[in-house]
């Protein structure tokens, strides 16, 4: 299997603080990968670097082994096929649920194309399909602002899927969800793997266990260890980092 995303010796500091320190990470095409780590481990900065929001000070970030991700911006990364779901759900509150999905659908993103855009039947069908998947069909005409926190999480997952990205970066999707919802999310992400590459950042160990995938432990901007959940949780360094001395 080919390497889909490669971070090679990436460094990034903010005012002398090394948020990312010689970080190397390779994720295969179609892989489902969980990234865990204590607060300040550099998880969010890592995602910022992958999506072009933050430029690394040094090191390479490669997409499909050919595209240099350090040279593109956020919109460019999205157009390449990198979808990102934020820790804090950000949906467009004044738009309806349906419109949120419609705007995320994979389509021409240029100014003129959107100005003269008319919704096709295929698009309408796709929207309904996605709304059913995230169980928001009954709320499709409500403003997104009216949704509960958990519903917003689902809506954002729906928006992410609407983009039909090759790579999904999912930041703490289970936050604010009920246990049942958490399990359903894990199931959904597992089902996406294979067709899509998925990187999940998560704190909730039950959720990570449910994902049943390879785990990367990040600490102080560096990869501490990698392997199955059982393997990494047996690692004494990981225990020390998580539990402290």
């Amino acid at each position: 299997m080919s390497v889909h995303l490669l971070l090679d010796g990436v460094n990034r500091s903010f005012d002398g603080y090394k948020a990312i320190n010689d970080l190397s990470l390779a994720v295969d095409k179609g892989e489902l990968r969980a990234v865990i780590g204590p607060n300040g481990a550099g998880k969010t900065t890592m995602m910022d670097i992958i999506t072009g929001k933050t430029r690394p000070d040094s090191g390479g970030v490669w997409w499909n082994q050919t595209v240099d991700l350090t040279k593109i911006d956020e919109a460019g990364s999205a157009r390449l096929g990198i979808g990102r779901k934020f820790q804090k759900p950000t949906v467009f509150e004044t738009h309806s649920v349906e419109e949120n999905i419609a705007l995320s659908l994979k389509a021409e993103r240029s100014v003129l194309a959107t100005l003269f855009h008319r919704q096709t039947e295929a698009e309408a069908a796709r929207i309904t399909e996605l709304l059913e998947l995230v169980r928001l069909e009954g709320d499709r005409h409500r403003p997104a602002a009216d949704l509960s926190h958990g519903q917003k999480q689902w809506l954002e997952i729906g928006m992410l899927l609407a983009q039909d990205p090759e790579l999904l970066l999912v930041d703490e999707p289970a936050a604010g969800m009920t246990d049942a919802e958490t399990m359903r999310t894990a199931e959904l992400l597992r089902s996406l793997a294979g067709k899509h590459t998925v990187i999940v950042v998560e704190h909730d160990m039950d959720f990570v266990r449910a994902l049943d995938c390879r785990v990367t432990v990040l600490h102080q901007g560096h990869v501490l260890t990698e392997g199955s959940l059982d393997h990494v949780s047996a690692n004494p360094e990981v225990i020390e980092v998580y539990l402290g001395r």
Binding site: D73, E74, A78, R109, Q163
Partner: peptide
């Protein structure tokens, strides 16, 4: 920022 991540320039 969110709009950018959806691929809109």
């Amino acid at each position: 920022s969110r709009t950018r991540f959806m691929g809109y320039r």
